[in-house]
Simulated scan of single mutants.
Amino acid sequence: MTQKQQAGKRRPGTPGAFSRWMQHTMNARMNRKVRRGQGSFMGMDVLVLHTVGSRSGQPRETPLAWFADGTDSWLVVASGGGSRHPDWHDNLMAQPGRAAVELPGRDAVPVAPHRLDGADRAQAWQRIAAAQPRIAKYQSKSDREYPVVRLTKR
Rank of each mutant, 00 (worst) to 15 (best):
V46Q: 07
M26N: 10
M26R: 14
H24F: 12
R20V: 12
R36T: 07
M26C: 10
M22H: 05
R32T: 14
M26H: 08
M44F: 01
V34H: 02
L49N: 00
G37P: 01
F41K: 07
V34I: 13
D45F: 03
Q23I: 15
L49C: 02
L49D: 01
D45Y: 02
F41N: 08
A28E: 10
G37Q: 06
M42A: 13
G43E: 07
L47G: 00
F41H: 09
V46E: 03
R20H: 07
R36M: 09
S19R: 11
M30W: 02
T25Q: 11
M30L: 15
M22A: 12
M44T: 09
D45Q: 11
G43Q: 04
A28V: 04
R32G: 06
A28M: 06
V34N: 02
F41V: 11
A28D: 08
M26I: 15
S19C: 04
T25E: 10
G39H: 07
T25I: 07
M42W: 05
L47M: 07
S19G: 05
H24Q: 13
Q38S: 09
L49R: 00
H24S: 12
R35A: 14
K33R: 15
Q38M: 11
M44Q: 09
V48L: 08
R36S: 07
Q23H: 11
N27I: 11
M22C: 04
M26P: 00
V48D: 10
R36G: 04
K33Y: 04
R36W: 05
M44V: 06
W21L: 15
Q38H: 11
M26K: 11
V46T: 04
N31L: 15
G39V: 12
S40F: 02
R35N: 10
G37F: 05
M30Q: 13
N27H: 09
L47A: 05
S40W: 03
Q38R: 13
V46C: 02
Q23D: 09
V46Y: 01
S40Q: 12
N31T: 14
G39W: 07
M22L: 14
R35E: 14
S40K: 06
R36A: 12
G39Q: 09
K33G: 01
L49T: 01
Q38Y: 08
M26W: 13
V34E: 05
S19Q: 14
D45T: 09
A28P: 00
L47Y: 00
M22W: 10
M44K: 06
V46P: 00
G39P: 03
S40V: 10
L47F: 01
N31A: 15
H24M: 14
H24D: 14
M30P: 01
G39Y: 06
R36D: 10
K33L: 15
M42F: 04
V34P: 00
V34A: 03
F41P: 00
M26G: 04
R29P: 00
N31E: 15
G43V: 08
H24V: 12
N31H: 07
G39I: 13
M30H: 02
